[in-house]
C-alpha cells in the first residue's frame, strides 16, 4: 500500500511524556509518510491522546524528539506548531461556544493560515460545505449537537490546510451511516493531499480508510503495519482481550 522510500513527514523518536511525575508515553517511536492516512488504535489509556497532545505542544516531552519535515518541533509552543502546519481535532469537542459556526472556522483560518477576514470567507464556506455545516453556519456553536460539534472540529482543523491533520476519535459516538460519512470525508481529504493521523476505536474505519495502522500499548508502539494484518495479529488480540476480539477477527476478514 505504501510506497517504498516514501517521504517522512513526521517522526517520533523515543518520546517520553506524561502528566506530573508519571509517564504515559514510554519511548514512543514511529513515522508517518506524506500523503498517507495513518491510523492509531490502542486500549483506553494507552496514550493515544497524550501522543497527540505532545505532538501539538499542549504537553512537552521529557525526552526524545518530534520531527516535522525534519525540523525538531518538540520545544515549540502550541500556536507555532499550528502555524507550522499541524491541525487537530479534540476528542471532546472544544468549540468557541459564543461564536457562530462560521466564525469558529473563520477565526481558525485567520490565525492558522494568516488570512484576512475577507480572504478567509471563501475557504471557511468551502470547509463548511465539505463537512455539511453550511446550513448551520450562523448558529452559535454552543447550540450544536455532538455530531455537528465533531464536524466543526474537522472544519476548524482543515480550513488552514495543515500539512498534518490529526483526528482524535471523530467517529466515536456516531451511528453507522454517520461513520460512513466520516470515512468518506477522510478519504476525500487524503485525495486532496492531506496527510492524516487518525485515532479511532472503531476498527471498521481503520480498515476502510487507513493505509497503515499502529496499535499502541502502554505508551509504546506495539504493532505497526497494514491494517488487516495488524488487526489479525496475536498481540492486538491480547491487548483487546474479551468480546472485542471476535469482532476484530470478523472485521479483519
Amino acid at each position: 500500500m505504501t510506497d517504498r522510500g516514501a517521504e517522512k513527514i513526521l517522526s517520533f523518536e523515543n518520546v517520553t511524556a506524561g502528566y506530573g511525575r508519571s509517564d504515559v508515553l514510554n519511548g514512543l517511536s514511529f513515522e508517518v509518510e506524506r500523503g498517507e492516512v495513518f491510523g492509531i488504535i490502542g486500549p483506553n489509556g494507552s496514550g493515544k491522546t497524550t501522543m497527540l497532545n505532545t505532538l501539538t505542544g499542549l504537553l512537552r516531552p521529557k525526552s526524545g524528539r518530534i520531527l516535522l519535515d525534519g525540523e525538531d518541533i518538540s520545544r515549540l509552543p502550541v500556536d507555532a506548531r499550528c502555524r507550522r502546519g499541524i491541525g487537530r481535532t479534540f476528542q471532546i469537542p472544544r468549540p468557541f461556544i459564543r461564536m457562530t459556526v462560521f466564525e469558529n472556522v473563520l477565526v481558525s483560518g485567520i490565525y492558522g493560515a494568516g488570512f484576512s477576514a475577507a480572504e478567509g470567507k471563501g475557504p471557511a464556506e468551502d470547509v463548511l460545505r465539505f463537512t455539511g455545516l453550511y446550513e448551520k453556519r450562523d448558529l452559535k456553536s454552543g447550540e450544536l449537537t455532538l455530531l455537528d460539534r465533531k464536524r466543526l472540529e474537522i472544519a476548524r482543523a482543515i480550513v488552514s490546510k495543515p500539512r498534518l491533520l490529526l483526528l482524535d476519535e471523530v467517529a466515536a459516538g456516531l451511528t453507522g451511516s454517520e461513520i460512513e460519512t466520516v470515512i468518506g470525508m477522510v478519504v476525500q481529504l487524503k485525495r486532496a493531499g492531506f496527510t492524516v493521523v487518525w485515532i479511532e476505536h472503531i476498527l471498521e474505519t481503520m480498515l476502510k480508510a487507513a493505509d497503515r495502522l499502529m496499535c499502541m500499548a502502554e505508551g509504546r508502539c506495539a504493532v505497526i503495519g497494514v491494517p488487516g494484518e495488524v488487526l489479525a495479529s496475536g498481540e492486538v488480540e491480547e491487548l483487546y482481550l474479551g468480546t472485542e476480539t471476535e469482532a476484530l477477527k470478523h472485521a479483519a476478514r
Partner: peptide, 15 residues
C-alpha cells in the same frame, strides 16, 4: 472572543 471561550483551542488554531 476565541481566547475567552477556550484558550486551549485558541492556541491550537494558531493564536
Amino acid at each position: 472572543l476565541a481566547m475567552r471561550d477556550d484558550p486551549v483551542a485558541a492556541a491550537s488554531i494558531g493564536l
